[in-house]
Write a protein that binds this DNA or RNA. Structure first.
Lengths: 373, 373
DNA sequence: CATTCTAGTCAGGGCTCTTGCCTAGAAAGG
DNA sequence: CCTTTCTAGGCAAGAGCCCTGACTAGAATG
């Protein structure tokens, strides 16, 4: 049965959920403010606060409404208890690992960055991941503010962005045949399992970048094309990132497009054909590409975007990645001359887009955990 | 706010919804059976029945529990009131129009078929649509069973399948440049608006066929490739048909694939190149194609499926349509030799797949209307 | 020091759900 | 034919949740 079973308990839990969400949003509220904010009556809101304090989810901050509000009785501010916990957001890229601890308000509690030497070997990447996460834990532990100390040491949930295809079922990084594979066979779930009390959720960095883009703009159907050392693509349909069966939707290296001379050819081979792949690596040589800016690359990407436009009918195609952002205008021009033109523009979220998406999801998951009990 | 506001009214409506859904499923139940089935207590279930009878949504059938059940007091059977209404499911294809009236149990109440002469001109199609729908209404009206008469004359919702691209916003048929366009500029919403008391929902026939396929098998991510006079493709991701911004996701005629001689070329042009398009029409000549079975067509479809596999990562690609079903094995063989093989099989729903999908959606929408009040 | 004004509580009441018991009434069995 | 058995449905009591409206506590204002 889809709809929840009707019961008084359902009502009560709904009330508590409203109160908790209001506190997540406004950080601290008096009982009266809670009632006004949630639309619940004052006695009911007060009763809910009493329950939640008893359950340890909400605390009296000790703060009182300041005189500045005018006359009247002073109110007690309540907020979420420190031990509702924190979430971990991690970005793993060839340049390095970034780990952040986020509390239920969405505040950044601690952050650590660990560079990775070139070329990135799987063991180095795993080691950097461990160092970054442990450093965040230490930072939280050393924090002066007691409220953070209790909450962040062992995150309740972790969300990881990785710059390679990720298996949707296992969370492991996946080497697809002949496609750029930047990090190697990392298993973030295994590494983090002991350091997180709950779920470790891993996904591809482009999917997270698309998630950040989605949150930043009111478009329900778009594609995010990521053009950097690796090639990536994320699909947002009906307002959600669509990952496909195994989670490798948008792994476009093998998409057949127009190659040099008009031949049909997989996208990744275009770069090989033009001598734009790094020696001893499947990665694209971005510096060389930006120096030469070959028209063939623009045409090939145009073929990719035409395929996206045809198959998923996006409102707009967002282009990101180091060389993607540089060539976005040439690509848009190429697409506008195709038989099915579609709007093309550069990504709106420019700073750490993948981490931004992972962070937003980590916050969302943490809040769900708190509300669900 | 996402979660519903807690209130006593919410509980009551949830109870009523449970009762209504149980009646939709089991057709007739006594109060005691309703309580057992929904898990709600007897007095509450009884009270809900009283409310729903008063609201006119439920009626005492007059039937009583037969002695066959053993001793004990006889119970009264309740079922949905006849005037909860019916839904209309319509399929518009070049061969003709089929219209069906469906009641809230999912029973076929009436059905009419109207052929269309070749070639199908827009006016003929619209006329056939009108005739079919009116004939269904007359059949319902003439029905001996009073219960159907009251319910089906003016459907509460209509779901239409059309064998051309459909604009998601307006429900109109959409001519895409140079793609096969079989029916012409029909406006089913305009035609049916006066004949239906509620919404008229139109979508492409391949999307509906995919919907029927989805209901028939436990797969959340697949693509449905439809190969007939027109070329179509539907994408099911995370358990739902994804239509894209305008609703023309999967209009694959212009997808770039491998053409004769290895040249990159839009899929539809492959058929022109091979002389497989009908004279004075954008449609594919299916008989000729099935006679010649050119290897180039299999290769071109293989390119389409490779693009689908790459971009949306389906668990399986389902092939339907007149020549698709005949060539499915050759296509599967071609795909299995590609660098990203994916399972390919023929569609499971063979009889009127589009109508089956539209019918299921019509039923779903009708039930939602009844439950929502 | 009286007034004003707000946070929080209390009292009363309505509604929904549940449990447990009772009644109606037909079939089964002697 | 009468008693027993057994189930559908109703009734009564009670608990829980939410709401309205009134009241109390207590600080700032003037």
């Amino acid at each position: 049965m889809d709809p929840a079973k009707p019961s008084q308990e359902l009502l009560r839990s709904l009330t508590d959920e409203h109160v908790l969400r209001a506190l997540m949003r406004y950080r601290r509220l008096t009982r009266a403010e809670l009632a006004a904010e949630t639309g619940i009556s004052k006695p009911t809101a007060g009763e809910s606060v009493r329950r939640l304090v008893e359950a340890g989810l909400v605390v009296d901050t000790g703060q009182r409404t300041p005189g500045g509000r005018g006359r009247g009785r002073v109110g007690s501010y309540y907020s979420l208890a420190p031990d509702v916990g924190a979430a971990l957001a991690v970005s793993i890229a060839p340049e390095g690992v970034v780990a952040e601890s986020i509390n239920a308000y969405g505040d950044l509690v601690a952050r650590a960055e660990e560079p990775i030497g070139r070329p990135a070997r799987p063991d180095d990447v795993t080691a950097a991941l461990v160092r970054a996460v442990d450093q965040v834990r230490d930072l939280v532990e050393a924090s002066q503010e007691a409220e953070f100390r209790a909450s962040g040491i062992r995150p309740r949930v972790a969300v990881v962005s990785a710059a390679d295809p990720v298996d949707r079922g296992t969370g492991r990084l996946l080497q697809l045949p002949d496609a750029p594979f930047l990090l190697g066979e990392i298993d973030p779930v295994g590494v983090l399992a002991g350091r997180v009390s709950g779920v470790v959720h891993v996904d591809n960095d482009v999917n997270w970048a698309a998630e950040a883009e989605r949150a930043a703009m009111p478009v329900d159907d778009f594609a995010y094309v990521y053009l950097d050392e690796g090639l990536g693509c994320a699909i947002v349909s009906d307002g959600e990132v669509r990952r496909g069966r195994r989670g490798v939707a948008g792994e476009v290296a093998h998409l057949i497009t127009v190659g040099p001379g008009g031949w049909a050819m997989p996208l990744i081979e275009v770069f090989g054909e033009l001598g734009l792949r790094r020696r001893n690596s499947t990665a694209i040589d971005v510096d060389l590409l930006l120096e030469k800016r070959p028209a063939e690359v623009v045409v090939a990407v145009g073929g990719l975007i035409a395929a996206l436009a045809t198959l998923i009918d996006p409102e707009v195609v967002v282009v990101g990645g180091r060389w993607g952002t540089h060539l976005v205008e040439a690509i848009a021009g190429e697409v506008s001359r195709s038989p099915r033109p579609v709007r093309v523009r550069a990504a709106a979220v420019e700073f750490e887009p993948s981490l931004a998406g992972a962070r937003a999801d980590a916050l969302h998951r943490l809040r769900e955990l708190i509300v669900a009990r």
